[in-house]
Design a protein around this nucleic acid. Structure first.
Lengths: 205, 205
DNA sequence: TATTTTTTCGACCGTTAGTCGATTTTTTAT
DNA sequence: ATAAAAAATCGACTAACGGTCGAAAAAATA
């Protein structure tokens, strides 16, 4: 690893920490370089702009999550479960996650948005593969898979990341998922249990 | 109407126009006050911050759009067209568009999010009514209408507000809309024409 | 050792949102 | 009508920020 690479990574890590603890908007370039002990010029030698840096930081953040999703892809489980596994990797197991929660803060709206977009972008090909597998097994039946899968990801992220969803939302989501993928009614019904139990865990706190 | 009220409205109107033509970020407070012929201090006598002012401007804009949507509701046209009319009021006729465009700027992510949420919130009851009318006419057939309608609004706003959608997105959207509302296949097909022509208009520029 | 490339430096810039005490205008009370 | 109080206006000034640039130091290469 070259020296330049190391420096860039160092800056990325500092920024990551600062962005998360104080929000992107509230972190100035000056703070970052002060903490790193470098000059303004050096910073701009590595990043063409602050926003570009945010993009890089996000890339770092989501790599782990996408990795998890990729594991699911290869696992020896039914396609229906793979779907759910991958979809829920958007929403990391609540509490622990440093990312979730802090992204919810209003001052991180931009980060939040960009993160979601990037994750979806990376998850679409994975989910597409799963759906194709499902089709070949006769579980699903549809065309324009990437688009359908993207809709699914958008909906799940928009619906479930604020914790303001009810029974009916789940019902409709399942119904829509089945119809979108051309599955037989009831195929995805098991999802209800999963979501419901997770949701209860959260409410108990 | 008091003098203060009038002045505030005057500033709001100037800002509205400038925001539309140049974008929020690219409009400085100095420009606004220059056009209004007042001093900095006067501006800050009426608005506690530029962002607060944006909030006010947005409030104004939303009201107009919801008003338009409400007109569609009472119009003597088929329910299928009402649906489309209301949904596309999220995305006002491109170029003019007050909200879209200026809200797309990364810096306005928070505002964008807030605006979308607010509009969707206000549009759900209207669309629900239309769908109920559709059911009574035998065009649609479904339960949990508000939730379904919300999904529809979320999807359309997420899909169509970035102008990065293709033929397949439209196909899937229509398919999903029909299935979500329990309409006969082909019922909403006419939407394709509308979106396609709009999209072309934009590309021609 | 000489030269070229990579990395670092930090003073400086332009722009911008926002502040503040002073001043003028308008309203209210006597 | 006049004095006092409140509302509105002014504009110079500040502080912060993202970003630039030419020069210098460090590292790699010949």
């Amino acid at each position: 690893m070259k020296k330049g690479e190391r420096r860039k990574l160092e800056l990325l890590k500092i920024a990551y920490r600062l962005f998360i603890s104080k929000g992107y908007e509230n972190t100035s370039v000056d703070e970052i370089i002060e903490e790193a002990g470098i000059a303004k010029g050096t910073y701009y030698y590595y990043f063409e702009s602050k926003e570009q840096m945010l993009e890089d930081v996000i890339e770092m953040m989501i790599d782990t999550e996408v990795e998890t999703a990729r594991l699911v892809l290869g696992a020896p489980i039914p396609v229906e479960q793979k779907i759910v596994g991958i979809i829920s990797s958007i929403r990391p197991t609540q509490e622990e996650s440093p990312i979730e929660g802090l992204l919810m803060k209003p001052e991180n709206a931009l980060m939040h948005k960009k993160t979601k977009q990037k994750i979806i972008e990376k998850l679409v090909p994975l989910l597409t593969e799963v759906v194709e597998e499902g089709i070949s097994r006769g579980v699903f039946d549809c065309e324009n898979i990437p688009e359908r899968v993207r809709f699914l990801l958008i909906l799940s992220s928009e619906t479930f990341d604020e914790s303001l969803f009810g029974e009916n939302d789940i019902t409709v989501f399942i119904d829509m998922m089945e119809k979108l993928l051309g599955a037989k009614a009831g195929t995805m019904g098991f999802v209800r249990m999963l979501i419901a139990s997770e949701n209860n865990d959260e409410k108990e706190k």
